[in-house]
């Protein structure tokens, strides 16, 4: 059928390669989302809009870029490990697609996510930049006196003694007992104060006091008695961020703690490039275009993760012949902290085959970390990139923006930004 819709579906993106390469200049979105509820600015930790950017105006080096993708694999391993434990799977098998095997460690998802928001904590409030994470529940920040250790962070470390609204939580508290199901680590008790511990998939960790404090999202959005971790021993790959903002499906997450105020509803729009800004919003606000909703999957019902039922994928407008069981066998989670989408091997093989066919006019380049389908666009100004859509139950189609289809390392190495899992049951 020659309709506008089908023409749109089959028509490839036309992309100027220069537009995909990282810029050193921050271009914040000029149009703030129209909202009535709390909205925070989201920036990429390593981009020019972030005050945590250690590199200033310099671009990240090639080895730093590789590290980002290796950390992404650690996060994926960690998610697999947690869900394997829940399902009774005997263990996670390392990815076959990556060249160097990355050791698997159980624990919470890795804490080195890429997007940060700045919130106010305490009275008077202190500004703290926290990593946004839909894959974990407990929010925490480094706290002085840093009894054991605090890593270097950009902003001053939070000082509980200087806040009039700070309080420790007692070991007898019901929330203290709930910590084990939240973090997977049994709480400790030090002079009647509840002690939390949270360890991430890359061996990063935070240990400290479970506390409550005033959390200021915006000048008009304040959450009293917000439970969080006041970290006294913190190590890992947090790189300048003051801690983590947990948004997962758990009673200790910010979403549940602010449930009465915001109806357990939040949304984000991540910056479309490292040199742009996005937002994180709490409470329902009407978007410019209506949302298409897909139900949370029953597969992850008893976990912290937000599970979705992926039902199909199209490349270049054609739905790929992937049997439904390929998606349903392992399930899918949506995660703000994982960068590259991981697909069941059979699904990824089909996507890669179709994508390579449609890109066969271009010169192939060597693979890059976990990305195995790359092109050398040296001397090429614009390229055609096939459209890719993911389908979810409820008839929801997410047509991936071109900025999410290809990962541009350099003009000579531009890769398909998808990867396969090691096993169909992952």
């Amino acid at each position: 059928k020659d309709t506008a819709d089908t023409r749109h579906r089959y028509r490839p993106h036309i992309v100027k390669i220069s537009s995909l390469l990282a810029s050193n200049v921050c271009n914040p979105i000029t149009e703030a989302p129209h909202h009535k509820k709390a909205t925070l600015k989201v920036v990429h930790k390593h981009g020019p809009c972030s005050h945590l950017n250690q590199l200033g105006d310099q671009k990240m080096s090639a080895s730093d870029e590789i590290k980002l993708l290796e950390q992404d694999q650690l996060r994926v391993n960690s998610i697999h490990s947690q869900l394997s434990k829940r399902s009774g799977d005997p263990g996670f098998r390392g990815p076959k697609s990556t060249k160097s095997a990355i050791p698997v460690r159980s624990g919470q998802t890795i804490g080195s996510g890429n997007y940060i928001v700045t919130v106010g904590l305490g009275t008077p409030k202190k500004q703290l930049s926290l990593v946004l994470d839909t894959g974990s529940a407990l929010s925490w920040t480094q706290c002085e006196p840093c009894v054991r250790y605090c890593y270097a962070q950009k902003e001053p470390i939070f000082k509980p003694l200087e806040s009039t609204s700070y309080a420790n939580v007692s070991c007898a508290s019901e929330l203290c007992n709930a910590l084990e199901s939240t973090t997977g680590v049994s709480p400790g008790c030090i002079t009647s104060t509840c002690e939390y511990g949270v360890q991430y998939g890359d061996n990063s960790y935070s240990v400290g006091y479970l506390s409550k404090e005033r959390l200021t999202l915006t000048s008009s959005d304040v959450i009293e008695n917000f439970y969080f971790g006041c970290g006294q021993n913190n190590r890992g790959l947090f790189r300048g961020a003051a801690g983590l903002l947990g948004l997962s499906r758990d009673r200790l997450s910010l979403i549940f703690q602010s449930g009465k105020k915001y109806g357990r509803y939040f949304s984000y729009c991540l910056p479309s490039s490292r040199s742009s800004t996005g937002f994180l919003s709490f409470g329902y606000r009407r978007p410019r275009k209506a949302f298409k909703f897909t139900p949370l999957s029953s597969l992850t019902k008893d976990t912290q993760f937000y599970g979705l039922d992926m039902t199909g994928i199209s490349v270049g407008g054609k739905t790929l012949p992937i049997t439904a069981s390929v998606f349903s066998k392992a399930g899918t989670v949506i995660d703000s902290g994982t960068v590259i989408t991981r697909l069941p091997p059979k699904a990824y093989d089909a996507v890669r085959k179709a994508f390579r066919q449609l890109m066969s006019d271009y010169k192939a380049a060597q693979s890059y970390s976990i990305l195995d389908t790359c092109y050398d666009f040296t001397g090429v100004e614009s390229v055609f990139v096939p459209k890719i859509s993911f389908f979810f139950s409820g008839g929801v189609e997410v047509e991936v923006d071109v900025s999410g289809i290809i990962y541009a390392v350099s003009q000579s190495q531009v890769c398909l930004a998808l990867a396969g899992n090691g096993d169909d049951s992952d």
């Binding site: 910056p271 275009k289 992926m310 899918t332 993911f390 992952d426």
Partner: peptide
């Protein structure tokens, strides 16, 4: 599990309606 990662969320606003147990997507300029 498969994981729908953040690189593929770009230019979409993603809404988590935890109360109604659903996730929504809306095209966005951001």
């Amino acid at each position: 599990v498969g994981i729908f990662g953040n690189f593929q969320h770009l230019k979409w606003e993603v809404a988590y309606d935890v109360g109604k147990e659903r996730v929504g997507f809306s095209p966005s300029a951001c």
